[in-house]
Computed example of a mutant assay.
Amino acid sequence: MFFLKNKETKETFDRELKKTRESFFSRIKSLFFRKSKLDTDFIDHIEEILLSSDIGTETTIKIINNLEKKIQKEKYRGGEIQKLYKLLKEEIEFLFKNIKNECLEQKIKEERKPYVIMMVGVNGVGKTTTIGKLAFFLKKKGFNLIIGAADTFREAAINQLEIWSNTVNVPLIKQHMYADPASVAYDTLQSAQSRKVDVVLIDTAGRLQNRIGLMEELAKISRVMKKVISKAPHEIMLVLDASTGQNAFEQVKKFISFVKVSSIILTKLEGTAKGGVVIGIMDQFQVPIQYIGVGEKIQDLKEFNGKKFIDSFFLPQIQI
Results as ranks from 00 to 15, higher is better:
226 K>D: 07
224 V>I: 15
220 K>S: 00
234 H>M: 05
219 A>K: 14
212 I>L: 11
226 K>M: 14
229 I>H: 08
216 E>Y: 15
230 S>D: 14
204 T>P: 00
209 Q>E: 14
222 S>N: 12
212 I>Q: 14
234 H>E: 09
212 I>N: 12
217 E>D: 13
219 A>Y: 04
225 M>V: 08
223 R>L: 09
229 I>L: 08
202 I>E: 08
207 R>E: 06
238 L>W: 03
210 N>C: 03
205 A>Y: 10
204 T>M: 11
210 N>Q: 08
218 L>N: 09
229 I>W: 01
206 G>M: 02
225 M>Y: 02
235 E>A: 06
210 N>D: 11
230 S>L: 04
202 I>G: 07
203 D>H: 03
215 M>H: 07
220 K>P: 14
203 D>Q: 01
217 E>I: 11
203 D>Y: 01
213 G>E: 06
236 I>M: 07
220 K>E: 00
234 H>R: 10
222 S>C: 08
208 L>Q: 01
237 M>P: 00
213 G>A: 02
225 M>G: 05
215 M>Y: 04
217 E>K: 05
230 S>R: 10
207 R>Y: 12
237 M>N: 00
208 L>R: 03
224 V>T: 15
211 R>Y: 05
236 I>R: 09
209 Q>H: 15
215 M>Q: 11
226 K>F: 13
231 K>F: 03
215 M>N: 08
209 Q>L: 12
219 A>L: 01
202 I>D: 10
236 I>Q: 02
207 R>K: 13
210 N>G: 07
206 G>L: 04
219 A>H: 13
203 D>G: 01
225 M>K: 04
221 I>D: 10
214 L>H: 07
224 V>S: 12
210 N>W: 06
214 L>W: 01
231 K>W: 01
219 A>R: 13
214 L>F: 04
204 T>D: 10
206 G>E: 06
202 I>P: 04
215 M>F: 02
